[in-house]
């Protein structure tokens, strides 16, 4: 068993487009930015012949001051440069499971992909369900199944982007694994991080999961058509989120009825115009 995520040998991270055969997955067993050698690897670091002499070696203190996630961050910067060169804007969509990320994407593709070409990287632990939905909506898509992994990282996005054969001058949506904790730590090279909350969740969500709300630039408040039936107070939510992240922007929308979606599209158009300059 692999120690990084507890996954079994057959539980690789897979990259698949809808319609592709199950076994087209990558056999390189890499865990995102880590690419670690496994503990059961037989290339042990120590010498098995024990022919070292017994005079004690020198000790040396090495001052590193190195960020533990520096490998991920470096690769994220490479992704960022690649996206910039292609004239892409990359949107990292993060939320709890069930907030409506995929529905928002479906609607965006149906309504707006003619004006602004879209491509999608779907991150989930299992299944091709979301990729199939996106394909049906009409955008190129690749599904990353992380197995037991709880987040996407820069290496996964790098590989997925290459496999996606993406057109320049478009929007790349990266739908992260539904999780408000771990994905906040991993820079993917995105242009903007967009956190989504639905009104069926509590309006204290930002207080409960501050790290994610602190690291996002935009917050989409989804399922506003359900506001009359739930206790979610939009102003309370916004004030809480703003006290954590003073710069956070908000768009209230309903991917189901289409209310507020225009505002989201103009946000994307503005980013896109800016990216082209």
């Amino acid at each position: 068993m692999c120690g990084t995520c507890g996954c079994g040998e057959d539980d690789h991270i897979t990259y698949r487009k809808p319609g592709e055969h199950q076994h087209s997955h990558d056999h390189q067993h890499q865990h995102g930015s880590m690419a670690h050698s496994h503990p059961h690897d037989h290339n042990h670091d120590h010498d098995h012949t024990h022919h070292h002499d017994h005079s004690h070696g020198q000790t040396l203190t090495i001052d590193l001051q190195k960020n533990i996630l520096s490998k991920n961050d470096l690769l994220a910067e490479r992704n960022r440069g690649y996206f910039e060169a292609l004239g892409l804007i990359a949107i990292n969509l993060v939320s709890s499971p069930g907030s409506g990320k995929t529905t928002i994407l479906e609607r965006t593709i149906l309504d707006h992909a003619k004006t602004l070409p879209c491509a999608v990287i779907e991150g989930d632990q299992q299944t091709m369900n979301d990729a199939n939905r996106i394909e049906k909506a009409g955008a190129p898509v690749i599904q990353v199944n992380t197995g037991n992994g709880c987040h996407l990282d820069a290496l996964m996005v790098n590989k997925a982007t290459k496999a996606l054969d993406i057109k320049d001058k478009s929007v790349l949506f990266i739908e992260n694994v539904g999780n408000l904790v771990c994905p906040s730590l991993f820079d993917l090279g995105e242009t903007k991080r967009v956190v989504i909350i639905s009104v069926t969740e509590g309006d204290d969500k930002a207080a409960k999961y501050p790290t994610m709300f602190e690291s996002a630039q935009l917050c989409l408040i989804n399922k506003t058509d359900l506001l009359p039936y739930v206790d979610f107070d939009v102003e309370t939510f916004k004030n809480t989120a703003l006290s954590i992240n003073h710069q956070l922007q908000f768009i209230e929308l309903s991917a189901k009825t289409g209310e507020g979606m225009e505002q989201w599209y103009s946000y994307l158009d503005d980013l896109y115009k800016h990216a082209k300059e």
């Binding site: 990084t4 995520c5 930015s33 010498d47 090495i62 590193l64 991993f186």
Partner: peptide, 25 residues
């Protein structure tokens, strides 16, 4: 659960730096 991936990042980075200094331990 991302702590385990962070732990492996730590081991990888530290091991790389130690190898650069020709260290064995």
């Amino acid at each position: 659960m991302h702590e385990l991936s962070i732990a492996f990042n730590i081991v990888e980075l530290a091991t790389e730096e130690a190898a650069k200094a020709d260290a064995r331990k």
